[in-house]
Amino acid sequence: MKVSIQGIGLLATGLAGWETGRAVLAGHGSFQPGEMPDPEAALLPPNERRRSSDCVRWAVQVAQEAIAQSGLGPREVPTVFASSGGEMGVLDTLCRTLATPEREISPTLFHQSVHNTPSGYWGIATTCQQSSTALSCYDDSFAAGLLEAVTFVHVEQRPLLLVAYDLAVPAPLNEARPISAGFAVALLFAPPSDAALATMQLHLRETDQEPASHLQDLALEQVRLGNPAARSLPLLKAIATGGSQKVIVSLLESQQLVLEIDRCRN
């Protein structure tokens, strides 16, 4: 299955925005993690932004960055949102309240607890009525999202926006799922075209001797291992570096996605 990549959004400490991220991943600048980003997600109406979760703001921020690069109108683009645990911060608040005798949970927090909350807010912000799927595959949620996204573009021959994110998990839930730093990435896929950042061929195979791609830079490799959405970093690095590159991403223990990337333009 061959697709083109028409836009990229990125958000993590030291990787705030694709321009910064591309330079770091291409080796033109050093990776300097610092403060956690606090994205504005300007596309969200002020009312919605005020009550939105971190997941929503991070996901909308990278989604709007990728859409803007592509030049496509957000109303025309279906979406896939991939996250291991979704709204872990909201779930922590709900479960704390449910452990009290009164169990008086906030109706707003309840409807924000679903896995497709960022998808819903993206729809409200853009008034997009296209298909939107939210999914999970634990540590391989990015790979599953990538498979769903590329399959959709291949079968339907239409553009699609993939957003993968996982935010830092608050205590005490982090004892069960220790994710200490947020990471969000968006990739706008479309049918093959020369007017794109890159083209990508995806091939699904059974796991063989060749291990999944990792990063040479130890600090970046820690980021990759520490957040399911950051499993996208080898793909992003390949796009940033240019030329023809092969990237392998694990999908469960049994399968791998083999990605062959060719950069089209800068």
């Binding site: 679903v114 896995h115 999914l135 999970s136 595959c137 469960l252």
Partner: peptide, 8 residues
């Protein structure tokens, strides 16, 4: 391939 779709 395996995944869980969660759209409420």
């Amino acid at each position: 391939p395996a995944m869980v779709v969660s759209t409420a």
